[in-house]
C-alpha cells in the first residue's frame, strides 16, 4: 500500500476521501503541485501518473496505489532543470507562476502523446500523425488555464523543446 512519488514511497492514506493532490501537498509536502479550482476546470494540479498527465484534484489517492507519480519537483535531474522548465524561463511562459507547474507537467506529457501518435481535435488527417504546430499545442494544452495570459510564451517554450528533441 504505497504510491511512488518522484521515486519515494508514500503510504496510501486510510481515508479514501484524500485526493492525490492533497496527499502530495499535505502529506508528502510537495507544494509545487498547485490547488486551483479543485474541480477539474483549470489544470493547475496536473501531475504525471505512470507517465500520463492527469488531474490530481479529481484522482483519489487510493486509486494511485502501486503506481508511480511524477510532480514538478521530480521532473528535472537532481538540481538540473528539465528542458521544459528551462524553455518556460527562456520564453517568459509565466507571470505569477501559479499555473506553471501544471503547465510544465502537461507540456512534457503532451509532447510524448503527440510524438506517440495520439491525435487531437485539430489534427487534420486522423489516419496520419499530428505535427508539432502552434495550433496543435494550443488545442492540446487547453486544459491548462493561465489567467495572466502567458499562453504565447508557453506555446513558444513548447515549440522550442519539440525542436530540440527533433534535432
Amino acid at each position: 500500500m504505497a504510491i511512488s512519488v518522484n521515486g519515494t514511497d508514500i503510504p496510501v492514506p486510510d481515508d479514501p476521501r484524500v485526493s492525490l493532490l492533497d496527499l502530495l501537498r499535505e502529506r508528502a509536502h510537495l507544494t509545487g503541485t498547485k490547488v486551483g479550482c479543485n474541480q477539474g476546470a483549470c489544470g493547475a494540479c496536473t501531475v504525471l501518473l505512470d507517465g500520463e498527465r492527469v488531474l490530481s484534484c479529481l484522482t483519489l489517492a487510493v486509486q494511485a496505489d502501486g503506481r508511480s507519480v511524477t510532480t514538478i519537483e521530480g521532473l528535472g535531474d537532481g538540481a538540473a532543470l528539465h528542458p521544459m522548465q528551462q524553455a518556460f524561463i527562456d520564453h517568459d511562459g509565466f507571470q505569477c507562476g501559479y499555473c506553471t507547474p501544471g503547465q510544465i507537467c502537461a507540456a512534457v506529457a503532451m509532447l510524448r502523446e503527440l510524438q506517440g501518435g495520439v491525435p487531437s481535435y485539430v489534427t487534420a488527417d486522423l489516419a496520419g500523425q499530428g505535427t508539432v504546430t502552434a495550433e496543435e499545442i494550443r488545442e492540446r494544452m487547453s486544459g491548462n488555464l493561465c489567467r495572466c495570459g502567458a499562453h504565447n510564451g508557453i506555446v513558444e517554450a513548447i515549440l522550442q523543446v519539440a525542436k530540440e528533441q527533433a534535432a
Binding site: 477539474g40 489544470g43 500520463e52 498527465r53 492527469v54 488531474l55 479529481l58 481535435y121 486544459g143 491548462n144
Partner: peptide, 12 residues
C-alpha cells in the same frame, strides 16, 4: 471524443 474535456480528463 477529442472535442470533449481536456487531454488530462480524457486520459482519466
Amino acid at each position: 471524443i477529442l472535442a470533449g474535456a481536456s487531454a488530462q480528463i480524457r486520459n482519466m
